[in-house]
């Protein structure tokens, strides 16, 4: 841990007019690690990335990336970073290969070196067959892979990935994860933002939770999971009467009346679930479905912010989707109205 951090942020503030987007953020990212900034839409994740990548200026605070201050030495920062944003910044009229060669030219690589790296990246991202087709003919996943390949041609020391898998098919998502893992193994620092807890859990060495422009928690995935004491059992009822009866049977826990579900804290053991169901059975309460939920980052988010993570901040806590322990980004997306 004696190396200086690859990214250090202290007292970062940013407001657009009256609207405060970042309200005093501090964080350090160790060189060669994968750091994940997790938060719902509108939490300020993209604004943070824009400031760290020199696209926007902070109102207050200090941000150093790869040893340089982003406000004072933006070009030194730019020379050390690669950025893949939420919206693919590729040239759709050029072919995939031409996009990469253009990036090589802008990194002032020699022609032979550009060609070598282009060929390697096309192979790595499974784009060899499409290399000479205009990007306009690519699928969404291919565009995103090309976008990442373009960020890598300059061999950055710090890579920023702003929601790199939003809207991607599972296969492309796996490729992204693989690449992010490989890069970190090769000593590149990866700063990743996501709304997907599964993604943060899978990739990150450390996770920070951003909510309303503040970090509400930071730690390893395991540390964060330890913040919540246990999981819960989620019960779904066929009608409101059953739900109301169940609420009184288990002692007045808040229920989600729209979704007709009730969450009951539980360690997920067979014995405890049996006891619970027995109690409902005694009172002849009809349960439609049951899911057991072991603690994961969803719970951390819920515990720390009072909301499920895939909700917009202005939604109340009572409209969350069902939580099951094996949910993935697909379900997350499907559950978002």
């Amino acid at each position: 841990m004696s190396d200086p951090p690859a990214i250090s942020v202290a007292g970062l503030r940013k407001a657009y007019g009256e609207h405060t987007v970042l309200d005093g953020v501090d964080l350090d990212v160790a060189a060669g690690s994968v750091f994940c900034l997790l938060g719902p839409n509108g939490a300020g994740k993209t604004t943070m990335v824009r400031i760290m990548t020199t696209l926007a200026r902070a109102d207050a605070g200090q941000v150093r990336v790869a040893g340089h201050d982003v406000a004072e030495e933006p070009d030194a920062v730019r020379a050390a970073i690669g950025v893949t944003g939420q919206f693919s910044a590729v040239d759709k009229l050029l072919t995939g290969e031409e996009n990469l060669v253009m990036m090589g030219g802008l990194h002032r690589l020699a022609g032979a070196e550009t060609r070598r790296r282009t060929a390697r990246l096309l192979a790595r991202f499974d784009l060899e067959d499409a290399a000479r087709r205009p990007v306009a003919t690519y699928s969404g996943g291919m565009v995103r892979r090309l976008d990442l390949a373009m960020s890598l041609i300059g061999e950055p020391r710090v890579l920023f990935l702003d929601e790199p898998t939003a809207g991607l098919d599972p296969r492309s998502r796996r490729t992204m994860w693989q690449v992010a893992g490989d890069l970190a193994a090769g000593g590149v620092t990866v700063f990743l933002t996501t709304q997907y807890l599964e993604e943060a859990d899978e990739l990150a060495d450390r996770i920070a939770l951003l909510d309303h422009g503040r970090l509400v928690a930071e730690g390893t995935p395991d540390e964060l999971k330890r913040l919540v004491s246990g999981g819960h059992v989620s019960l779904r009822f066929p009608d409101e009467a059953s739900l109301a009866a169940a609420v009184s049977a288990v002692g007045g826990l808040p229920a989600d009346r729209d979704a007709l579900t009730l969450r009951i804290p539980s360690d997920g053991s067979v014995a405890s679930v049996k006891t619970l169901l027995g109690r409902l059975d005694e009172q002849a309460i009809n349960v439609k479905t049951l899911s057991i939920h072991t603690p994961d980052l969803d719970d951390v988010f819920l515990a720390l912010t009072g909301r499920a993570p895939d909700q917009a901040p202005d939604h109340g806590p009572d409209h969350g989707p069902d939580h099951t322990s094996d949910h993935g980004p697909d379900q997350e997306e499907a559950a978002t109205p």
């Binding site: 020199t54 030194a76 730019r78 970073i81 944003g85 919206f87 693919s88 910044a89 802008l106 990194h107």
Partner: peptide
Amino acid sequence: SEGIIDRFRTMAI
């Protein structure tokens, strides 16, 4: 509008 200028602006060019 397609964001490619943002990409160029994150590069030391």
